[in-house]
Design a binder for these strands. Structure first.
Lengths: 206, 206
DNA sequence: GTCTATAAAGGGATAGAC
DNA sequence: GTCTATCCCTTTATAGAC
């Protein structure tokens, strides 16, 4: 087969894999790993049930693939945040904003998925380790931003890693609340950072 | 059968139901509804697979039962919080504290379970409505505490219901982080309330 | 690469004995 | 009330034709 054809094949494979992964993110995020059926994934991705197994060895393989990629993306976003500005405060603002808005369509599910994977335990220990490892890295990276922000006087005092946990917890918690819009509220970067920002003088509220 | 015997029977039923519900809270909370097998529940509760169906019509019935009871308990805790003190700040402090510590053993799973139920969608709409309804009540009750706390000057300004969401989001997010102790931190009521409390003068931090 | 049909497995739910 | 054995449906995964 000519290089041209094999290239074409590869392209098709990539597209199909993408369709499946996108469908999976939303479904896994919405219903969890166990409750999501292969047929639902292939329906959403608009291909046949059988074809699934030409692209992934099993449901679990797809799950892990998606998960690892998501975590990688999130860490890349931290890199990007740090390129946006010199100010740690601005960096965290950018990151918080992008977390809530940029992943427009199924962005929320990305985070839910990661949280699910972190606190549930249906996956093999080594896989779990892998995920936790990457999540830890994320926490550390954010705590480093906070630490620098403390030096500039933008953020309150306290153990940076602990503050990072509080920050991430709030962000994730809000994403969950909003995901199911049982109590829909307008997310605000300023309000999310309320617990982190140092409060100078007064009259800044309202 | 004598009243004495029927009473004894009822007692056994109650004990069994309790065993099953306790086991279910932990397992559902840990793995989710779909991933939890009846056999796992009965194993943990130390009775046979078949006996399960003498106590609950189905897995879903157990799930809903547990969920509704948990939400009821949480609302009762708010009642209790309001009896503890006249001060809204003290009330919320008490509630936050009890949320993290009182439900000692599997307390964490109670909250995770509720969150799962809220944002996932494997249960019938009417059941879901029921759950959401009760959760909304919780949010309202907390926002009322916050509203009163604004009048006393303990809490910052802002839409009370929105502040309640931020508060609950943080609490839930922290519970999740801690549940899997990937990044174990010491939860602190003061730090949780940092985003809500009005900051008088300065020098209070550190 | 893609599909339909089918096999294989897993787990919820029931039957019936004790 | 409790257990073991079994049914049966759902869903994962494979086979084989196009």
């Amino acid at each position: 087969m000519s290089p041209r054809t094999s290239e074409k094949f590869k392209e098709i494979r990539d597209v199909r894999q993408h369709q499946l992964k996108d469908a999976a993110i939303e479904l896994f995020g919405m219903k969890g790993f166990a409750a999501t059926k292969i047929s639902e994934i292939t329906n959403k991705a608009e291909l046949s049930h059988g074809l699934f197994y030409h692209y992934f060895k099993s449901k679990e393989e797809l799950y892990v693939t998606v998960l690892v990629e998501l975590l990688e993306t999130m860490i890349e976003m931290i890199d990007e945040a740090e390129e946006q500005s010199e100010s740690p405060l601005k960096q965290l603002e950018w990151l918080t904003d992008v977390t809530h808005s940029a992943p427009l369509r199924d962005g929320v599910y990305r985070h839910i998925l990661i949280m699910q994977a972190l606190y549930s335990d249906y996956l093999p220990v080594e896989t779990k380790e892998n995920i936790v490892e990457r999540y830890r890295l994320m926490v550390i990276r954010i705590s480093q931003i906070i630490e620098r922000g403390q030096l500039t006087g933008d953020f309150i005092e306290g153990e940076p890693e602990e503050l990072a946990i509080y920050h991430l917890s709030l962000v994730h918690g809000l994403l969950l609340s909003n995901a199911r819009k049982m109590v829909p509220i307008e997310l605000s970067v300023d309000k999310v950072l309320r617990q982190l920002k140092r409060h100078e003088a007064r009259g800044e509220d309202a």
